[in-house]
Design a protein around this nucleic acid. Structure first.
Length: 164
DNA sequence: GCCAACGTTGGC
DNA sequence: GCCAACGTTGGC
């Protein structure tokens, strides 16, 4: 029995890895590596399931905002960068037999016809409770309610039906 | 570039 | 186990 689809938001700095970079990746898919926050790790390890949809948010840019939608295509597995001494995300305490950090694979699904800047999210009363607009919210992987997800899609000029 | 918010580290 | 110091995030 399929569990109900859930919705998420991931942040990425476009100078580091933009939505266009995701689209340009093999199969428009990448592993969401380098996350070094336990709460975000737990979300990827325990909660993100194949078929879940993800808002792709550009942070540290002007203006920050939601640029597109991605889909979870592989569930949690060990982040290889934690074992690579040459990688900036290397974690000397992580053990192969008991990995500390987890990734999921995400695939680009649809770019929003209209970019939805943070200002617009904040201006929408329906999104007042949305995590990403809360002051001091730094989580790079966070849950989004179905209603908030639909509203952001609508603001971006997409319908849920467009996502198949 | 600044700095507020927040998570982690480490001395005690 | 407390909490000050420190590093990072990310909007502005």
């Amino acid at each position: 029995m399929a569990t109900k689809k859930r919705y998420w938001l991931v942040k990425s700095e476009p100078d580091v890895f933009s939505y266009a970079d995701l689209v340009a990746s093999k199969n428009s898919t990448t592993l969401w590596d380098g996350v070094r926050n336990y709460q975000a790790r737990n979300t990827m390890r325990d909660d993100m399931k194949v078929g879940d949809l993800v808002l792709y948010y550009h942070s540290n840019t002007k203006p920050p905002g939601v640029v597109g939608v991605a889909e979870v295509v592989r569930e949690g597995y060990p982040d290889p960068t934690q074992f690579d001494p040459n990688d900036s995300h290397f974690d000397p305490k992580a053990k192969v037999e008991d990995p500390t950090w987890i990734v999921v694979d995400v695939r680009a699904k649809a770019e929003l016809p209209e970019y939805v800047p943070l200002d617009a999210l904040k201006a929408n009363a329906k999104l007042a409770e949305m995590a990403v607009i809360q002051r001091g919210q730094r989580l790079s992987v966070q849950p989004v309610s179905a209603a908030h997800f639909r509203e952001v899609l609508r603001m971006g000029g997409l319908k849920a039906a467009d996502l198949g």
